[in-house]
Write a protein that binds this DNA or RNA. Structure first.
Length: 285
DNA sequence: CGGGCGGCCTGGAGGC
DNA sequence: TGCCTCCAGGCCGCCC
């Protein structure tokens, strides 16, 4: 589910709601996610601590508290984190719940904020590691730059593409090249750039990379502005949907008219993922 | 060695 | 209605 804009939407809500609160409790009903949740470690290292910040690296959220350890959250394909008043699971597949207490000086003191972690398919992850191990953390260690922060994304991508044989779409979705871009935003950026998903990266020239980098950034930024994309599961932390679904040009729109030329949107499988595109507006190579 | 693909899970949709 | 198959926003590891 969640790509960069959905995870950034979550991060902002967490930061706004929880900075300065104390993580009071962490309940785990089910620990067998993508990796087993180190529940004891998580409780021992993180509860009782004041929350400093929530950061994001690609599709991972990092919770920093006043200690030498941090919490890591990933939503996999179907994960959500919801702020709910209940202290027991009210949705199926609620695997964890965190209670945060506002500071004594806050007008909200005495009203814990409860964050429920829900993930039907259990491809997500909750972890706890030392801050000084963050740089070596396996899922992040070999990942590429943040697309919205790199000073010359076009140059970076062109460099990464040298001597590679792959098609542009799986290239964009490979976190080693850049983080945060999944199936939705890869399809949308390629449409806006007028590049066919199967174009070999070797066929792209300087101006193609510049156009593509520009639209990758544009599509991610616009999606962040409207709270991400809700296809099915994704909700913002307060339960709202993400409104970028309304701005999708091609993703999931098989047979619908291309917004530019009105020809039918097509779908093809590429590296095991569906790719939607307009065969007229997006020429191969 | 890099890239494609299956597997990990569950639920929902669609076919019969 | 019910059963079966296929598919889904991510990621890892195997295999060629």
């Amino acid at each position: 589910m969640p790509e960069l804009p959905e995870v950034e939407t979550l991060r902002r809500s967490l930061e706004e709601t929880l900075c300065g609160t104390i993580l009071q409790e962490a309940h785990f009903w089910r620990k067998d996610l993508r990796i087993p949740i180190p529940a004891e470690e998580f409780r021992k290292r993180l509860t009782g601590r004041r929350v400093r910040s929530f950061e994001r690296r690609g599709k991972y959220v990092i919770m920093k508290v006043e200690s030498e350890f941090c919490g890591i959250f990933h939503l996999g394909m179907s994960g959500q984190m919801l702020s709910l008043p209940e202290e027991k699971p009210i949705y199926p597949h609620t695997h964890a719940m965190f209670s945060f207490c506002p500071a004594r000086s806050s007008p909200l003191r005495g009203h814990p904020i409860r964050i429920h972690y829900i993930d039907p398919r259990r491809f997500g992850l909750i972890d706890c590691i030392a801050l000084d191990a963050l740089a070596d953390y396996a899922p992040l260690k070999h990942s590429g730059p943040e697309p919205l922060e790199h000073p010359d994304l076009a140059e970076h991508l062109a460099g990464r593409a040298k001597n590679k044989k792959t098609a542009i779409k799986p290239f964009l979705m490979d976190a080693k090249n850049l983080v945060g871009v999944g199936n939705i935003y890869a399809c949308e950026a390629l449409f806006l750039a007028g590049i066919h998903p199967k174009t070999p990266v070797t066929c792209l020239g300087r101006t193609d990379w510049e156009r593509l980098a520009k639209y990758v950034q544009q599509v991610l930024l616009q999606a962040v502005k409207v709270g991400g994309t809700t296809i099915k599961d994704f909700r913002q932390m307060n339960g709202d949907v993400g409104y970028f679904s309304l701005a999708l040009n091609v993703y999931g729109r098989t047979g619908e008219p291309c917004p530019v030329c009105s020809r039918s949107i097509e779908v093809e499988r590429l590296s095991g993922r569906n790719s939607w595109f307009c065969a007229y507006c997006q020429k191969k190579n």
